[in-house]
Simulated scan of single mutants.
Amino acid sequence: EDRDRILGALDLGDRTVEEIMLHRSGIEMINSSDDPQIILEQCLKSSHTRLPVYRDEQENITGVIHAKDLLRAMYDVVGGPEGDASALKSFDISAVAMPPYFVPETTTLDEQMRQFLRIRSHFALVVDEYGSLQGLITLEDILEEIVGEITDEFDSDADQPVIQSEDGHYLVDGSTTIRDLNRATDWSLPDDEANTIAGLVIHEAQMIPTAGQVFSFHGFRFEVRGRDGNRITALRITALE
């Protein structure tokens, strides 16, 4: 654990936000065109404190809403506990949302951490060289590269990306980064060609595998256990003797 923390801190200047960001496919967003009651329900059901806000299409990010700001503003519009809930029909989330903060995907983790501390924020949207949304990154993501996974009361065992079965196999979410998998298992799978374990399997197989296909490389056996569209969602990994 000490080794991982020291190496994690030293690596921040050599790694980019692209490597650890949450991919756009996994970002939970709010459509500002939705009915305010729908927005409120989505916010209450979400396990996230901050949610990006878009209008009509997800590439058109107009802001970021904090759950506390949203609830406080809606409470004021309604008029308190004895107020009129129908007043929410005129609520405009754009008036409450904070301006979005965009960063290039090539920004190093060391520089991004400094930027977060400088602007007193810890939530950024990641874009590529063409300005297209690629994902999001938080200060917690960067800190986890040093201290390991940070869990809270909203994290359940089902959310763990790497689960070891009783027979020694590992059940792994396809979106798990190779670095996180290596730290969880003390393996040394290469991350030069891909950031995620699903990306590594696709790179080595030179194809998008179907569920049930099995591959062996780098001293491990990879069985594809789930696929959604062109994404590998679940893998069963076994170390070969």
Score class of each variant (00 low, 15 high):
Gly199Asp: 13
Asp110Asn: 14
His218Thr: 06
Gln112Glu: 15
Leu109Trp: 10
Asp141Trp: 11
Leu117Glu: 15
Ile137Lys: 01
Tyr130Asp: 13
Gly168His: 12
Ile137Asn: 07
Gly174Gln: 10
His122Glu: 14
Gly229His: 11
Ser132Trp: 09
Val126Met: 07
Arg225Val: 06
Leu133Trp: 04
Ile146Arg: 00
Leu117Arg: 15
Thr196Ser: 12
Glu223Cys: 02
Thr138Glu: 13
Pro161Asp: 09
Glu204Phe: 05
Gly148Leu: 06
Glu149Lys: 09
Asp152Thr: 03
Leu143Lys: 01
Ile163Asn: 09
Thr176Ile: 00
Glu129Asn: 11
Ala124Arg: 08
Gly135Tyr: 04
Asp155Thr: 09
Pro161Phe: 08
Arg225Lys: 15
Tyr130Cys: 00
Arg225Trp: 04
Arg225Thr: 13
Ser121Cys: 07
Leu200Pro: 04
Asn195Tyr: 08
Ile197Trp: 05
His122Ile: 03
Arg231Pro: 06
Gly174Ile: 11
Tyr130His: 15
Ile137Glu: 08
Gly168Met: 11
Val147Tyr: 08
Ile202Gln: 01
Val201Met: 01
Gly135Asn: 09
Arg114His: 10
Ser121Asn: 15
Asp159Ser: 01
Asp155Met: 05
Leu181Ile: 08
Ala158Gln: 11
Thr138Ser: 10
Gly219Arg: 04
Glu111Cys: 00
Glu149Gln: 12
Asn182Cys: 08
Glu129Phe: 07
Val162Gln: 01
Asp180Glu: 15
Gln112Lys: 00
Leu171Cys: 01
Leu117Ala: 12
Asn230Ser: 08
Gln112Asn: 13
Arg225Pro: 03
Gly148Cys: 07
Met207Ala: 11
Arg120Met: 00
Phe220Pro: 09
Glu145Asn: 11
Thr138Val: 03
Gly199Gln: 10
Arg227Val: 14
Phe123Gly: 00
Thr108Glu: 15
Arg118Asn: 11
Ile146Thr: 13
Thr108Gly: 07
Phe123Ile: 09
Gly226Gln: 09
Ala184Asp: 14
Gly131Val: 09
Thr151Gly: 00
Thr151Leu: 02
Glu145His: 06
Pro209Ser: 00
Gln134Phe: 02
Pro209Cys: 05
Ile137Asp: 05
Val127Phe: 05
Pro161Trp: 08
Asn230Trp: 06
Asp157Asn: 05
Ser132Gly: 13
Ile197Cys: 09
Arg114Gln: 12
Val224Cys: 03
Thr177Cys: 01
